[in-house]
Amino acid sequence: MLRKIKPYLLLFPAAATIVLLFFGGLFDGFLKSLGYFPAIGETGFSLKAYSSLFHSDAFWDSLIVTIRIAAISSVLSAFLGAIVAVVVFMMHEKSRSGALNLWNRLFQLPLTIPHLVGGYVIVLLFMQSGFLSKILAKVGVIEQIPDFPVLVNDSFGWGIILAYTWKEAPFVALMVYPVLERIHRKWRDVSRVYGAGNWDFIREIVVPAILPAWTVAAFIVFVFTFSAFEVPYLLGVTYPSMLPVYSYQLYSSGTLADRPEALAVNLILALLTVLLGLIAYYFSKRWNVLKGWE
């Protein structure tokens, strides 16, 4: 008997923690999004919050901005990350020095840096009177501050995109690199025997090899960017804001009347991320990404 339930006992503490603290929170939020709010004397259920959200421009604008920013960030960081991984890999092939190892580590630095700091770095670099603007002015490319494009706290979301691209490209590289390492010896030698150059090697072997892991990595970045709060809070504009910020704006508006809507935004956000997560999971299983490329 004990043998049979032992694994469940082992699982119980971790699962219970998540159920209580995480799903409990989701459920609590779900009830309140339906207007069940005993604290202010509301005990009825209604879909009012959801219907008013679906009728508000603010919600749809916010959703569009969120998708746009997440899509552009994931594509950019995927490209940058793949380039980093391939370059480091090609270098690695040629030299086995410790210096390279150090570089390898340095590339992971943005990964260790907290998102808030990453966001602030982008502010200092790209704001209209920021570091790049100063350099361009010194070189003579621009004459006045307004000549520099508005890239931080802009309504398109370039600042957020830049911050995520910088932060997540190393993540993509990290996901792709192990796959590259597996190609390492044998294929490289074979291709060399047949006289393939670097470029052919990349096109014929490297790209197809990393494609599955790469796609999944980009997708993970998309899901993460879609639902993160700190960076858009720091680098975005008041309107239209990304969904997490929009939800927080509603949540902290100073009146409890907006709470059901805020929590409804949260629930929609959770549903969308679960959906996206399932898609990513499906493809990673199907392409066997986590096992790597043989």
């Binding site: 995480f22 409990g24 939020g29 639902s227 993160a228 939800s247 927080y248 679960v274």
Partner: peptide, 15 residues
């Protein structure tokens, strides 16, 4: 593994 996908603040604002 759900909290990897669903952002934590969703649950925290709820609770």
């Amino acid at each position: 593994f759900a909290p990897i996908v669903i952002p934590a603040f969703v649950a925290v604002l709820g609770i």
